[in-house]
Amino acid sequence: MRPFTYERAIDPEAAVAAVSKAGAKFISGGTNLLDLMKLEIERPIHLVDISRLPLKDIKEEPDGGMRIGAQATNSDVAADIRVRTRYPVLSQALLAGASGQLRNKASVGGNLLQRTRCPYFYDTAASCNKRDPSSGCAAIGGINRGHAILGASDACIATHPSDMAVAMVVLDAEIELLDADRATRRIAIGDFHRLPGTTPHIETALKTGEMITGVVLPAPPEGRQFYRKVRDRASYAFALVSVAVVVATERGTITSARVAFGGVAHKPWRAKEAEAALTGGTATMATYWAAAEAAMAGATGRGHNDFKIELAKRTLCRTLAHAAQEN
């Protein structure tokens, strides 16, 4: 690990001021950043510890929504009874990710900013446009079984690894940011993560020195929520494909639907085409399959990951069939 200096910030304003130094980075749970620092993929020269900032509250908002502080741990959010009852898809997604130990440490803000687990990004002997811009992409033409099938580019086919963010996308969450000038802004989570294009090293809409202070969830959408994750082992593995849905039905007709996928793209992937195909349709497998076909119409495999296109369709159908069951 490269040497660095360390400081603990006492309030959010001090934190954004401290991180304005060149080479400085925030650290919170550290579960991803320290892993990457050990491999010298991340090489900050100064760390600003924001884990003790008073940004841990999980609060109900007057409009029926909730606000989750960026420093709340993944565990605290997943276990919050209000989240479990009103946003079960978020609790399910969090519990599908990592391990008990990691969830106890990982923050909500850090989860959003975690880096891809593409093995070529981690392998400093391999070319990677995300780690080393313009060096090439070893995953294209390499072992790409886990890689993106939607929204990828010739520069990068990495996926975003978060489960939590997939649920937040389906819930239309907004991310609250604070910058070095102490200005705050909110951005829709769908606009927060970027597709790789020609600049896969630029992963989010965060401006230099900006800090995530919280995530705002609008009031729960109508319908039943469900998160399903498909992976190589039963627990503690990243998704091959995951699906978050919110579906409302009335006498066998789908009145509203929201769909998002994880493990398929450089960002948590909202599938509006699938939602359009579902809304107004009958709650039957034929409708689900049509929606799945619509969601994957633009999908491209790179060889080893071709199976993910079919897997994503079937996972969506199974998840919809489960969620659309009327009580």
């Binding site: 490269r2 040497p3 660095f4 200096t5 360390y6 400081e7 603990r8 910030a9 006492i10 001090a14 001021a17 401290a18 130094k21 080479g23 020269i45 100064h46 600003v48």
Partner: peptide, 20 residues
């Protein structure tokens, strides 16, 4: 601005001061 700063940023590339 902060509770505790440890290490010397200017020399961080070479060596880091120990932190108490």
């Amino acid at each position: 601005m902060s509770l505790s700063t440890v290490g010397d940023t200017k020399n961080a590339e070479n060596a880091t001061e120990n932190a108490k």
